[in-house]
Amino acid sequence: MLIGMTIWLNQIATAIANLVLAPLAWIPGGLSLTLLAAITGLVMLVVIKYTSHQPALQYTRNQIKANLLALSLFKDHLGVGFRVQGALLWGAVRLLGLSVVPMLVMTIPMYLLFSQLSLWFQSRPLTVGQQTIVTVQFGAGQERSVAAIQLNALATPAAMVTSGPVRVTSKNKVCWTIQAQHPGLHDLVFQVGETHFTKEISIGESAMPVSIQRPPRQLTAVLVHPREQPFASDSPVQSIEIDYPRRPPTWVTGSDWWMVYWFLASMVIALLARPFLKVHF
């Protein structure tokens, strides 16, 4: 049920993201990420404001600050110091308790946002002429399917198979090397007997969502790969994956650093906006 709900949420998030994040294709990566971070920071602030017990948060924060000041003001007596430490600890625990509600409220939207952003910023689409590896993972006991699978070149004009398939029977995997042909979002079509399986492929210079894997119907995989429909549990094919190139290493939009930048930028924006929105956290 949880997986089903996650898939359903992913579909909605993807549909919204297709609309909302579409302008990212025309905006430079750094700017778009900054813009998104700003919006995220502001939205989070508003959400925290209305989902948390603001007076209690303010009071607890003030108590923590007071106790921090007390540590420097009343340092002559060890017993007093420990009492203040105890109060500090209690304040932190109380803060923890007060953070639970906004945390619960924000967990799902944050996950959805984060996973959608990762489609845009984690990997780069293939460029025309670039080669990469496609791996199909089969379920256990699907040796026949491993032997029978074919990448349907006719149905996949966007990419050309340059080598493969390489069948790793011990791991139920089949790999191809393909070469990107035409820019855009296309589907690779795989055929096992009469059954067809597709996988989205992103080709081109402009920004576009990059779905690395069409996942199996498993929670962790569905959480991380939200864009494509997962394979059914009884499907012979469990996942299909494309090895996309990493984004160039920059501090803003590099493959790993975009997350750090997004976190930091959203926090800075939230900090700056906090006095105006009068939010305590």
Binding site: V47, V100, S266, I269
Partner: peptide
């Protein structure tokens, strides 16, 4: 001092950190 990130998850982590501190 009070800032614990843009998301509520940050709030949680911040609180853990306050305990740790």
């Amino acid at each position: 001092l009070a800032y614990i990130g843009p998301g509520a998850g940050f709030a949680l982590a911040g609180s853990f950190l306050a305990v740790f501190g």
